[in-house]
Amino acid sequence: MPFLTLRDYCRALGVPIVVGAAIGSCCHVSTVHATEGGGSNYPVGVNTLLSGIQPAPGSHIYIYLQAYEATTFEGNNGNPSSSVANFSLHAQAAAFRLSHVWRDVTFLGATLESRTNIPFVNLDLHFDAHTPKGTVYKSGRATGLSDLTIGPLFLGWHLGNLHQVLGLEFFVPSGGYDPNKVANPGRNYYSMQPNYAVTWLPTPRVEFSARALYSVNSVNHATDYHSGNEFIVDYNAGFRFTPMWQIGVSGYFYKQITDDTQHGQVVNGNGNRGQAVAVGPSIAYGSRRFSVALKYQREMLVRNRPEGNRFWLQMYMPFQ
């Protein structure tokens, strides 16, 4: 059986696979930080498979299901935080991305795409907080719409076996938020994220992809907490062993670049800068009208964030 053409393969896998679900520890925790609550607007690890290839002209829908669980919250030295014990976070997300690539419209030789992401989350968090007055048990659950993502313009270039996408996304605080609650679906601040993705296909069977972004975060005015800016890289290395099946290794690198501040002061004296690296296997199947991918990512080298495991189920269908 002959292999699909590059164009058919990219359509079959539904690229690029992205979503704006605010999950990856999408919660506000008043006693631990590294960005407020140790989370991020961006769902780290989602943009892995063929992330540098823009889909064909027309409309597309992407569906993303994620489960995340963590039982430790790491401190600044990479060991479990001394201020938190018996930490447990379980989070699930379902997100829908609507994408439209404009027909017969180009700019600087690139095709143009617009996106929006609609995420929903379910959170279950509990831990013991060590305070000067003793140990306090904290817990919370939350379910609902998380923060929407708007991507007004993405530019896509296709140069032989090298493909690139350059864009800008905005995270809007549309999810529910209460500063008195331990867990919230929304994060109550805006983020602006310029991003660049590249996919290199040196042979019809082999793929190398990466997507880098820099998240500039605004102040959460309910708590006067300003989460530091973040640099994130999602990546994938894949091998297509049949016309429709690919196996690979995917994950992400997360690094907080600037300090957290609250009331104009650096949090905890060192900015509580977060860090994480994740890696794990992936498998994907694609036809010309449907694709599905399953991924597992294990976190390590974590600082000032929860350390856990992510499971992804991602699907794609074109309208055209």
Rank of each mutant, 00 (worst) to 15 (best):
Y252V: 06
Q92M: 11
F208C: 08
L294E: 09
P173Y: 00
G24C: 08
G45T: 14
D224F: 08
Y235R: 01
G134P: 02
S291L: 02
A129F: 13
H28D: 12
S81P: 00
S25G: 14
V302D: 00
Y190A: 00
R298K: 15
N86T: 05
N229L: 09
S287R: 05
S88W: 10
F154Q: 04
V121Q: 03
R310C: 07
R187F: 06
F154C: 02
G20P: 05
T135I: 14
M244L: 04
Y196G: 00
V249K: 03
T199G: 00
I53F: 09
T5K: 12
V182I: 10
L294T: 15
W157Y: 13
F3Q: 13
R115L: 15
L301T: 07
L89M: 09
A95N: 11
L123H: 09
G39C: 10
T258C: 02
L125A: 05
E74H: 02
Y296N: 12
L125M: 08
G151T: 12
Y285S: 04
E230Q: 15
D124Y: 12
V279F: 15
G24T: 13
T258D: 05
W312C: 03
T261S: 08
G151L: 08
S83E: 08
F253E: 02
R305M: 08
P16W: 02
H221N: 11
L6N: 08
V121C: 03
S83T: 02
H226A: 09
M300W: 11
T5P: 00
V84R: 03
A34T: 11
S59I: 04
S227A: 13
N195Y: 07
V101N: 06
P43C: 11
L159F: 11
A129W: 14
S82D: 14
A94F: 09
Y177I: 06
A237N: 04
H226T: 03
F208Q: 04
C10L: 14
V18I: 12
A85P: 00
G280Y: 15
G134Y: 07
G175K: 06
L148I: 14
S215R: 15
R103W: 11
L49C: 02
P194A: 00
F253D: 01
K295S: 15
G176N: 04
E69I: 02
G37M: 07
I53N: 03
F171R: 05
N236A: 05
H100K: 08
K181S: 13
H130M: 13
D178C: 02
R187A: 01
